[in-house]
């Protein structure tokens, strides 16, 4: 872990390398399990955080491995929220359409699949500008999800 990186109970800060994705998944899985989500849901939350961080690395940081990504967990009685913060290029996934999966699969398209998984598996997904030049991706999972 770099000197500037932090890992506390509900927060993990990593450099923007895909080599750190496993750590993200493990961190989020542990917190989701502690929050009482069943195993299948824990796995989908970890997958969505992996996909969101991968998108940040690829699109916000253009694969530069030395930038910072902050992952914060906010557990609530009815839900768990994960906030992924970066200070790279803003990209608003709301402006990106999920692929038409029928067309995507029949023509073997590339790209957009991670976003499709996030939108399909999380209960709420939204984006907003944080402090200064920082941008936040918010992922929410309800405890009442099937």
């Amino acid at each position: 872990m770099n000197r500037n990186e932090k890992k506390t109970g509900m927060r993990l800060t990593i450099n923007s390398s895909t080599d750190r994705l496993r750590e993200v998944r493990d961190f989020v899985s542990d917190r989701a399990r502690d929050a009482g989500f069943r195993d299948e849901v824990v796995h989908t939350i970890a997958l969505c955080c992996d996909e969101a961080c991968t998108n940040v690395i690829k699109h916000a940081y253009a694969n530069a491995p030395d930038r910072e990504i902050d992952i914060r967990i906010i557990p609530r009685r009815d839900e768990m929220e994960i906030v992924i913060t970066h200070d790279g290029e803003s990209f608003d996934p709301d402006t990106i359409k999920s692929p038409d999966m029928k067309e995507y699969l029949s023509h073997y398209r590339k790209g957009g699949l991670g976003l499709h998984l996030i939108r399909s598996l999380m209960d709420k997904v939204f984006y907003k500008q944080g402090n200064g030049s920082r941008y936040e991706v918010h992922l929410v999972k309800f405890h009442s999800s099937p």
Binding site: L21, R25, L47, D50, E51, T54, L105, Y108, K110, L113, G114, H116, L117
Partner: peptide, 19 residues
Amino acid sequence: EYISSAGLGILLMTQRRLK
């Protein structure tokens, strides 16, 4: 143990090439 969309993409591209 685990696969994400990145892994799925490699499999899909291979399938496309073969087909």
